[in-house]
Simulated scan of single mutants.
Amino acid sequence: MTSDGLEHESVIGQPVVGQPVVGQPAVDQPAVDQPAVDQPMEEELVDVFLCMSGLLLSEQTVGSALELVTSLAHSTLPSTSAAAVTLVDERGRRTSVAATDPLAEQADSLQYELQEGPCLTALAHERVVRVHDVAREQRWPRWSQAVLPLPVRASLTVPVVIAGTCMGAIKVYGRHPGSYGAHAERVLTLFAQQAGVLIANMQSLEDARRMSQELQQALISRDTISTAKGIVMAREGVDEESAFARLVRTSQRSGKKLHVVAASIVQAVPRRGR
Rank of each mutant, 00 (worst) to 15 (best):
E214L: 15
S212R: 14
Y173F: 12
P149I: 00
H8S: 06
D108V: 01
A195P: 03
G63E: 08
P151W: 01
D28C: 04
A268E: 08
R186A: 05
R153M: 04
E90G: 12
Y173N: 00
R253G: 03
R130K: 02
G13C: 07
R142H: 00
V21P: 00
S221I: 11
Y173C: 00
A208H: 10
I12N: 05
R93Y: 13
L45E: 03
E90L: 12
R271H: 04
V17R: 08
R91M: 15
V27H: 03
D33K: 03
T165L: 14
V187L: 15
A169Y: 11
E137D: 05
E90D: 15
Q267P: 08
H132I: 04
A26L: 07
G174C: 05
S71N: 13
Q115I: 07
V32T: 14
Q111F: 00
R175K: 08
L68Q: 07
Q14N: 12
R235T: 11
Q267W: 01
S251H: 05
L50I: 11
A135C: 04
D223H: 13
E236K: 05
D4M: 02
E185Y: 09
A31Q: 07
V266K: 05
A243Q: 07
R186D: 06
V152F: 00
L87K: 02
L50P: 06
S75D: 12
E214G: 12
S53P: 04
E105S: 14
R175W: 05
G237C: 11
E137P: 03
M167G: 02
R274I: 14
Q106E: 08
K256H: 15
C51E: 11
R130D: 05
F191M: 10
Q19V: 08
A200R: 13
E44S: 11
A73H: 02
D133V: 06
Q19A: 08
V172H: 04
E241M: 13
P141A: 09
S179G: 12
S96T: 07
V260G: 02
A135R: 09
P159M: 02
S264L: 10
A65I: 03
V48S: 06
T95G: 08
Q267M: 12
E240Y: 14
S179R: 02
Q194H: 09
Q252V: 11
L66G: 00
F49D: 06
A234L: 15
H132G: 05
V11K: 01
Q106S: 06
V46S: 13
T157I: 08
P40K: 14
A245F: 05
Q145N: 07
L114W: 01
E90H: 14
Q217A: 15
D4E: 06
S71D: 06
